[in-house]
Write a protein that binds this DNA or RNA. Sequence first.
DNA 1: CTGTTAGCGCCTTCAT
DNA 2: ATGAAGGCGCTAACAG
Lengths: 333, 333
Amino acid sequence: MEKQTITIYDVAREANVSMATVSRVVNGNPNVKPATRKRVLDVIDELDYRPNAVARGLASKKTTTVGVIIPDVTNLYFASLARGIDDIATMYKYNIILANSDQNNHKEIQVLNTLFSKQVDGILYMGNHLTPELRAEIVRSKTPIVLAGTMDAEHEIASVNIDFNEATREVVETLIENGHKKIAFVTAAMKNVASVDFRLEGYKAALEKAGIKFDEKLVYEVPLTYHAGESVAERIHKAGATAAVVTDDETSVGLLNGLIDLGVKVPEKFELVSSNNSKLTKMTRPILSTIAPPLYDIGAVAMRLLTKIMNKEEIVDSEITLPYKIEWRNTTK
Amino acid sequence: MEKQTITIYDVAREANVSMATVSRVVNGNPNVKPATRKRVLDVIDELDYRPNAVARGLASKKTTTVGVIIPDVTNLYFASLARGIDDIATMYKYNIILANSDQNNHKEIQVLNTLFSKQVDGILYMGNHLTPELRAEIVRSKTPIVLAGTMDAEHEIASVNIDFNEATREVVETLIENGHKKIAFVTAAMKNVASVDFRLEGYKAALEKAGIKFDEKLVYEVPLTYHAGESVAERIHKAGATAAVVTDDETSVGLLNGLIDLGVKVPEKFELVSSNNSKLTKMTRPILSTIAPPLYDIGAVAMRLLTKIMNKEEIVDSEITLPYKIEWRNTTK
DNA sequence: CTGTTAGCGCCTTCAT
DNA sequence: ATGAAGGCGCTAACAG
């Protein structure tokens, strides 16, 4: 009296057809006489038969499962992308194997390998950076991989992003127009990181255009956490900065609160712009101004792109840049 | 020149052994002479062989994959539990198929079925309520299922929780001691929902103990969103309530901000206690007092319990109640 | 339109 | 300690 599973074979017997026919109706193959189809269908739900996806995967070499690598599910930025990914995946009947990478290179590679061994049909990668090792693995992978919200500096790997460079530049330019000379740039504490570099480039470009000399002291590399934002507030304030662009929402909230605790009036005495427009940005007082990437859409479009690649459709452009907005709210004047 | 996959068979040939032996070394079966084992291992990494998990799953009837049903990944409460689940799952070599249910009964049942068809070894369910239909499916399932942060009013299904009733009672009692007579209770807009009922019971118990008559008008059933919290602020304030217990953090933040916007001093004129201690609660000004369930642990313990059940170990207690704390922070005096 | 026949890659007795 | 052989449940030609 074990797992008394009922198979395609049982159905075939009960319906007086071959298993091939059952397989056909299950897979919606049109080559089945309506009458036969109905008979099979009846038996199927009489027996409460459910196809075994594992067996199907072995035989067809398709698992209708995609892997999703995420740094941390409790990070609202990535979770929002994941939401878009999941919805489109569901729409296309794919299931998702989710794996937290902790933004740890070693773990990422390990995760990638277990995903391969699980025979996923495709992989969606989210992360702030792409290390050379990981890049190498991705490039030589036979399994389709798409980056969501992550840049590949070499522009070789399929990806969906916004133009971080331009967005950041636009924000900084506006800040400069508002009269700021010393604008802090708060970002992740990592070197050689593509997406961050792009943002930094935008920051520098804006300064240069305005004839302001880039001051390395105003670039704050911190862990992207609430706490880090809160504690860096004093340093930023003391450095004489009167505005800041922060690449992460949680960190922005921390910085904002840290500033307020120091008695700094925002936005009167200090203007602050965040970067992700996760729902956190609307929960503060004053509410945060921010670059607003279409979070859900980045995930959704990335997943859609992946389905196309898995499906071997013609891909016009495998590096998609989505439009963004800038929400000027209450931490700016 | 297709998916030139290398199989256990290739390894066997190269190492001059049978595939059975290769299988043994791959699975750590001790019945292999060290010399042979080494030879096989060498070939394995020379050929860069990776076992095909799908084939393995078919043959062994174990997929080392568990399904996780979550209402919404962008909800920090559930995402925090998921973090605990994922870490322990990884520790025990399980992968996770994540599925958003949107707290929608129909979708939940559908998701449950696709999880079954994928032959997951076990399932972790998160959600606020357990509808009768879903309960029925779970009870008759041959696949082990554990509820994380969700109560089963019948106490039949394995689960990991805190004592919501007691926690709420304790909070309300303290609020009453602080002199409050009219305490609002903000909760999900659902009737007959176990987790809601338990909390409401605690609320009522505390009132009764203090001889305060329960007033249905002070129970606010709203969608558990930031916006709902913000908009209900005025009604609560006008109703003359001077304190509130809210069952969701995002809603709490909304209520807090709504109150502040109305010019109500918190905590001087209004005390507020939230329920989940997600990281949101520390991002407000003033920071939120809250019931503090061990979020990560609930997920971790639930996953651990699931591994035991999957492993057919002896289970002493399949309904685990974890201790909680109450963080009296700055929205209370 | 339907049935037959091979596998898919691996695990697992059962012998040896 | 190792090999041989029979599935696991299903898909996919290939016949008819």
